[in-house]
Design a protein around this nucleic acid. Structure first.
Lengths: 340, 340
DNA sequence: ACTGTTTCATAAAACGCTTTCAAAAAATAC
DNA sequence: GTATTTTTTGAAAGCGTTTTATGAAACAGT
């Protein structure tokens, strides 16, 4: 049997209220008493029940995290930031994998609600209007990371400037002498991110007076196999291959594309330059080291947690609810060749 | 305000006990009443408080997972298995990152205990005798995955036969004509796994009458940079390079070694063959595709959860507490060249 | 009609904590 | 010294469930 607060109280010769106070607001209790209570706790290895505390105090010091898929390669970095910041604020994190399903995501809000989480971090899927009812009802602050909202309920989002990031990639490529620049873009039913990156690509081309050629663009859902297949289609669309550089909407797809190119006897960056997106840890591990856009995943996670911690228990002012764009960075490595 | 069980009871014209029963043991209540209660729940979007339930029932339907580091590449696959199995059993998972620190790991047990978890999955770090006190005290079943125990408290472990796996690698290499086989092994203060894999390597060599040469062996702590540096040392130790194949204790270190070789103008598998260990998702993504030992991470996670679910609430018989060795598999890809 | 069983539902007591309210004790003011 | 404020403590209510007695109601069997 675990020791309860009553056991500690009895051992220290005080009431449970006092024990509770030395735990939560020690400045309200006599230093000498604190000492006695602490000793009692120590001696019986007392660990307060987070559950009971949660029930009583109506806050659980727990944050809920909803991710679309635990196996997404960016998850680890994002979680690292969230975990770090949570810890600093004395919070635990409850993880929920929505498995890329809208229904499971919705369910996630309910379930996390059942755990009395103090706030919820929702990741990576566009939040559409049909989230409104649940968003209204959930009763705790919600923040978005790596995505944004189209719902009417105002929700802050933490991400990078996708358009600008992809624009930067194109600019970088053009500077290195590339003109025939293709793209493997992201696209799925609830994906705004994909759109934005594509927009950045088009904007880049336009800015440098390059015409948009849809034969140079294919789509995938961010995973390795999608990248591989998209590259395959790109290759088939133009037998006389003349693309000199390729942007992608994710490092994983970049990897897929590179694998596909290799399988077709093409080399990176000799035959074609490739730029990734994300800067996953593995980007610097592969050969050639991948030039890519670094998303500050950990920082995004930390920022989201900080916001949540600040927002819990009070109504955040409208000015606090907006899009927080964190700085991205183009990491030059070896997968891009300067032309001519 | 969230609706409580009392609200539902009132709306349905029954007592809270009845509502609780339709939730937990519907077979004890009249179908008609169930209907009424269900309707009431529906109408007020009732979500039971997992917290209150946990406090009252003294079980939280939550499993605790302690991992050494969230950014370890194998984490995702393991978690996938754990999450899947947990869900099937109506359990949630609470994650705790010990950050490779023994103290944090110990603390993890306490904290998870505070959340009334029904069981704990401990991962990847050798459990030594100093875990005994906490293991005794924790009061819920504990299982180990990807590691084993030297503590006196009996704890089951789910992993592969490390020795055999590495033996298989050597055998595979020898069959392909390799004789000068090096290894980048794992080793850290609390690492049994590293020892076992090294043992398998030595056993393999012995079996095929190859002499163990310590100049062909270096150590690292499983991460990419460790592999890179170990390879560097290997290269320095023998200027007239004559190793034809290299086993590694992890895919990440294999990647590091390959990067290092590439940086030194050596190619895989033309100049040297490399075998990884783990079969991380990225093993099939890189060029060359990595030949490696597949650990059934997801299955290990599932098995661990199943065991836990079976064990909760009763004293598991001694025969159930042992080492569960799940089958590994050597995945042939492209990083090994057949000699001669 | 009178027991004896089932079946279904309720009232009320936990579960381990926090927190409000009020009182006791100590410190300060006059 | 008493009156007033401040500090420190305790009793008890409550958080939203589950669960244990316990009791009505319904149904047999005689």
């Amino acid at each position: 049997m675990r020791a309860t607060i009553r056991d500690v109280a009895k051992a220290a010769g005080v009431s449970t209220a006092t024990v509770s106070r030395v735990l939560n607001k020690p400045d309200m209790v006599d230093p000498e008493t604190i000492e006695r209570v602490r000793a009692a706790m120590e001696s019986m290895a007392y660990q307060p029940s987070a559950i009971a505390r949660g029930l009583s105090a109506k806050r659980s010091d727990t944050l809920g995290l909803i991710v679309p898929g635990i196996t997404d390669f960016f998850f680890n970095e994002l979680y690292k930031g969230i975990d770090r910041a949570s810890q600093q604020n004395g919070m635990k994190v409850l993880l929920y994998d929505s498995e890329h399903s809208r229904d499971r995501a919705l369910e996630g809000f309910s379930i996390l609600g059942g755990y009395q989480v103090s706030g919820i971090i929702f990741t990576s899927k566009l939040v559409t209007e049909d989230y409104d009812p649940i968003l209204q009802r959930v009763g705790v602050p919600v923040v978005l990371t790596l995505t944004q909202s189209e719902a009417r309920t105002p929700v802050p989002s933490f991400r990078i400037d996708e358009v600008r990031a992809m624009f930067d990639v194109v600019a970088y490529l053009v500077t290195r002498g590339h003109q025939k620049i293709g793209m493997i873009a992201g696209r799925q039913w609830d994906d705004k991110t994909g759109e934005l990156r594509l927009e950045g690509y088009r904007k880049g081309l336009r800015h440098f007076g390059i015409e948009y050629d849809e034969k140079l663009v294919e789509y995938g859902q961010y995973r390795f196999d999608d990248g591989y297949q998209a590259m395959q289609r790109l290759l088939e669309k133009q037998p006389n291959f003349h693309m000199t550089a390729l942007c992608t909407a994710s490092d994983e797809m970049a990897l897929g594309a590179i694998r596909c190119l290799n399988d077709n006897g093409l080399h990176v960056p000799e035959d074609i330059s490739v730029v990734g997106f994300d800067d996953l840890p593995l980007a610097r591990m592969i050969t050639p080291r991948l030039t890519t856009v670094a998303q500050p995943f950990a920082e995004i996670g930390e920022a989201a947690v900080s916001w949540l911690v600040r927002a819990v228990g009070r109504e955040p002012s409208p000015s606090e609810i907006g899009d927080y764009l964190l700085p991205h960075r183009l990491v030059e490595r070896e997968s891009v060749r300067a032309l001519g």
